[in-house]
Design a protein around this nucleic acid. Structure first.
Lengths: 210, 210
DNA sequence: TAAATAAGTGAATCATCATTCATCCTTTAT
DNA sequence: ATAAAGGATGAATGATGATTCACTTATTTA
């Protein structure tokens, strides 16, 4: 007699959902969460406003999901860099560089993830995100302590400092005020920036100048 | 014939203005900027809503002013600690401790100043505020480099890292989720927290374990 | 094809608060 | 005391957008 959800429909819905997520990310990459209006997202995704709410509890929930996804990608990259060959020190260095360089390459989205004022649910995701990074770093620091390349210390605390130092150093260069000045980001300057951040961080960790 | 602003009136207005500022700060200290509603502030200050706008352009402007004042106090304390006797290294250490300890003592307001999502104008003040700290630290780092207690480095960059490392380390302990758990802040734990932050920072700066 | 059910729509609604402004109240100066 | 000039008031307004929901359209099964 009746209708029953079929594979085809399930797929179609999944696609719509995905399109909404993609468009939201695109909006965020353009102007941050604040400027990503539900109506805009809907029209970009080719669905009605109301349809957004078939897929997501609320705007905040949608944003939280987008945040989670965008974040996961970044965290994975850092994890990947930490999984390469070498002692903990060089791997940490690689991963810090990865973090910073990726942020400078996608500045608006990085700013949104790191520093844009957001609502509670997204803010909660952000704390998770930062903790995820810190967790990764913490593990590597422990490995370094075990293998003797990093002196004994409170690994949890140090990892938090790493995240903070990088984030703060990037906030200036990433802030929207700077983003839309046309002076363009000089890749050489960026490189120097990254280098000095890393220097500070590695010194903080190892207590050794190089 | 007519009315002309007199000293008495000027004073009364100044008092009202001050009362508004005080109450706003009080509100912020209770629940952050987000929960500080204009109507609430007005009634606390014993004035009509509209009167707020006799003294401040807008809610945002009021908040920006409050932010500035609260901030100035903090910055001054750090500057004071930097002005004490001793070489740059010990003075920096003192000032970092000052910064962190004060934050832990007034956690909600500290969170608002450091990490609460806020509107553009206030956010702008926050950038200034962070730069003010960074500027102070930067000066001290230069002094250290000049006197030979701190190795050559990009002082600007390092100071930014300091601010970031501290801020990030505090965001966890300060975040409202933690603030209203009743477990109370153990002063001993706080002390350890502060110590390890400082250790990391000083190492990052000097490249020397102690 | 028809009945049953779900998905999709988007204009209308709602919620939230900051902000305004017509009005009344105070102060000043004569 | 009174006129002139602000000052203070707070209910009403306005702006912004998220969210809803009555209705339309699609899909499935018999």
């Amino acid at each position: 007699m009746a209708y029953r959800e079929t594979e085809k429909m399930r797929k179609r819905k999944a696609q719509a959902r995905q399109r909404i997520l993609d468009c939201t990310l695109e909006c965020v990459a353009e102007g941050g969460f604040r400027h990503a209006k539900v109506t805009r997202i809907a029209s970009m995704a080719g669905v009605a406003t109301g349809s957004i709410y078939r897929h997501f509890e609320s705007r905040e929930e949608l944003f939280a999901e987008v945040f989670r996804l965008a974040t996961q990608k970044e965290v994975d990259k850092v994890a990947e860099a930490l999984g390469t060959k070498g002692d903990a020190v060089v791997r940490l260095e690689r991963s810090l560089r990865q973090f910073a360089e990726r942020a400078l390459r996608g500045p608006m989205i990085a700013w949104s993830l790191i520093a844009e004022p957001v609502d509670t649910k997204v803010e909660r995701e952000r704390l998770r995100y930062r903790r995820a990074y810190a967790g990764l770093f913490e593990g590597a620091i422990r490995e370094g302590m075990a293998e003797g390349t990093i002196p004994e210390q409170n690994a949890r605390q140090s990892s938090t400092c790493l995240v903070g130092a990088i984030a703060e150093s990037l906030v200036g260069p990433l802030s929207p005020a700077k983003l839309d000045d046309t002076s363009g980001n000089d890749p050489e300057t960026d490189q120097q920036l990254v280098n000095s951040i890393i220097r500070f961080c590695m010194q903080g960790l190892t207590g050794t100048r190089r």
